[in-house]
Computed example of a mutant assay.
Amino acid sequence: MNWPTPERMPGVPNVSIGSIKRLDGLTFHAIDPRPVDVWLPAGYPANAPYDVLYMHDGQMLFDAAETWNHQEWMVDEIAGALQQAGDVQPFIVVGIHNRSADRHAEYQPQRAFARLSDADKAAQLAQRRTLLDPLYRGDVRSDRYLQWLVEELKPVIDRDFRVSPLMSDTAIMGSSMGGLISWYALERYPTVFGAAACLSTHWPGGFPDGDNTLDDALLAEFEAGLPEPGTHRFWFDHGTETLDQHYPELQQRADQILKAKGYTDADWQTRVYPGADHSEQAWASRLADPLRFLFAKPQS
């Protein structure tokens, strides 16, 4: 797969609030190239320094006219409205596009995958959506994806935009497999990310009705890498329909890990949205909730 090529490069999204800057000249030593779009709120840079939210699946965030399913997270509308109302700290959003064939390999927490036996690893890597559509293309390589994000992308954001580089002002967010890579990013780089929002986290790791050795490995890795309470913050949520119907029991196991570690409402929230399915429209409908959690204004 050679995407993205110049003739197939996704268009720069149109936004209703604020503006988009597509980054040029990025280096990609650790992973294959892909677009990165930076959303700047209306009035930028008047409220500098801004917090930063890194988001996965960047092509799905801003403009339904550019997405494969004609849905979007409505990030510009929702984040823009929250900031204009003064409900949250000022922040920008860095949307990192996925490469669809590489998504599972880049978003699967690598240290969790390494916990599997060789036979279980082979079984996972052999999974296919269809005969011609493997779930993975190559080995799991999320550590390389995060290394690129932290070592190559973040320095560009810190240099070229009016932002705070501090861990306490830097968050990461994603849904489904993007939920997995978001908590994993915080645990792998706890001095870089202060908070993670994980929507509809795909705790099964693969097909929900398949071999469940991977979900045990994911939860074991989550527990092993969890920072001490009071230093970082986590948001988890899920709906109850379509793919999300498979998440409650596994999310409850993650919640028990957080509770046993000593996390409280101040640094951890798990929400259930009855009737919500596994889609960008569902994530857009509740996006304001994790954004308020991530970028809450300090209490006076």
Rank of each mutant, 00 (worst) to 15 (best):
E249P: 06
K261V: 02
H238R: 08
A254E: 08
D265T: 10
H238Y: 09
T240N: 04
P248K: 06
R253L: 10
R253V: 02
D255H: 11
Y263H: 10
L243F: 08
D237V: 04
G230H: 11
H232G: 07
G239E: 12
L250Q: 07
Y263L: 08
D255T: 05
K261R: 15
D237N: 01
Q245S: 12
Q256W: 05
E241Y: 01
L258W: 07
G239F: 13
Y263M: 12
K259M: 07
R233S: 03
F234D: 01
R233M: 09
Q256P: 11
G262E: 10
G230K: 12
I257R: 07
T240L: 07
K261N: 07
P248E: 10
K259P: 01
E241A: 11
H246D: 13
Y263T: 06
H246T: 10
D244M: 08
G262R: 07
Q251F: 09
A254V: 03
Q256K: 12
T231V: 02
H246I: 08
F236R: 06
Y247D: 05
T264L: 15
T242M: 07
W235A: 04
G239I: 09
F236G: 01
T240G: 01
A260C: 14
G239C: 03
E249N: 12
Q245I: 08
L258I: 08
I257H: 04
Y247Q: 03
G262W: 10
D255E: 15
A260Q: 14
L258R: 02
Q251L: 15
Q251T: 14
R233Y: 00
Y247F: 08
A260K: 15
E241R: 06
R253N: 03
G239H: 09
Q256N: 08
